[in-house]
Nucleic acid binder design. Sequence first.
DNA 1: TACAACCTGTGTGTTACACACAGGTCAAGG
DNA 2: CCTTGACCTGTGTGTAACACACAGGTTGTA
Lengths: 144, 144
Amino acid sequence: MLTVNELALESDTPAHVVRYYLRIGLIQPAAQQENGYRLFTSNDAARLRFIRMAKHLGFTLNEIKQITQHAELGESPCDDVRKIVQHRIHENRAKIEEMMKLQERMEQALEQWDLMPDGIPDGNSVCHLIESVEGSEGHCHTET
Amino acid sequence: MLTVNELALESDTPAHVVRYYLRIGLIQPAAQQENGYRLFTSNDAARLRFIRMAKHLGFTLNEIKQITQHAELGESPCDDVRKIVQHRIHENRAKIEEMMKLQERMEQALEQWDLMPDGIPDGNSVCHLIESVEGSEGHCHTET
DNA sequence: TACAACCTGTGTGTTACACACAGGTCAAGG
DNA sequence: CCTTGACCTGTGTGTAACACACAGGTTGTA
């Protein structure tokens, strides 16, 4: 039987993360000591390693919970797994594109600001640098 | 004097977001009606538009709060503003790279799974698709 | 037996909202 | 004057995935 710390070492997971997973019911202790300490088997370590793999593939903890619950009922989670990854690929692509746009905005701003002095705020302006950025006026809300 | 809803329309911000900003003290009502309704001036609308610009440039609400507080004291926030954007550019670049790696992992997995049938879970395996992914064993933790 | 190092479970804080809820306000209609 | 309905109000709570702090328990050494 392993303690939380030993389980953490065994599964290459920070102990406080193991405790978090316990809290949300993603894993359960196999037994409990009289003093309240939680105890685990090597099977729990394997489960935890599975969780890490799934996270590495972009699954959320909720999805992982669903998957392991399915598996415990003997149902194959594979179909859901494929769908989730397909969905996440789209989602992630959109997020990446958004972040690259942000990156461009920030880089352009910094370059533009190189030629501008610092300013002292007055009633009309909070920070003229930010306010000077292209697209400050006339946002194009053509999407959605 | 504008109500929350009017301020929201004036500044092109969802009303529930305006209420959130009020809650965290990012903006303050200029006055209050007897019934508790909060009232604002057109200056508040300008402030809110500034907040949207800053968010568009990647500033967090906390950072924006600092900036506006600096500005209210008559101190120039420009120096901090430049530093924050520089920092965020690095941060964002790292995040984008990480997400692109995830993207590649997911795409590779999906391709690999095309040749694999669904499986029924047993005691040893939760989902053989996830467990089959390259790099499941022998993680290379060479960084930090 | 005293002490220090470490480990335990758990409460709270984080970011930027989204949703829900009970009640208040306003214009139209009877 | 009263009601009905639509809309608006402030506020409590939930979200994802931890990170940190805290008071107390355990273990090894002297």
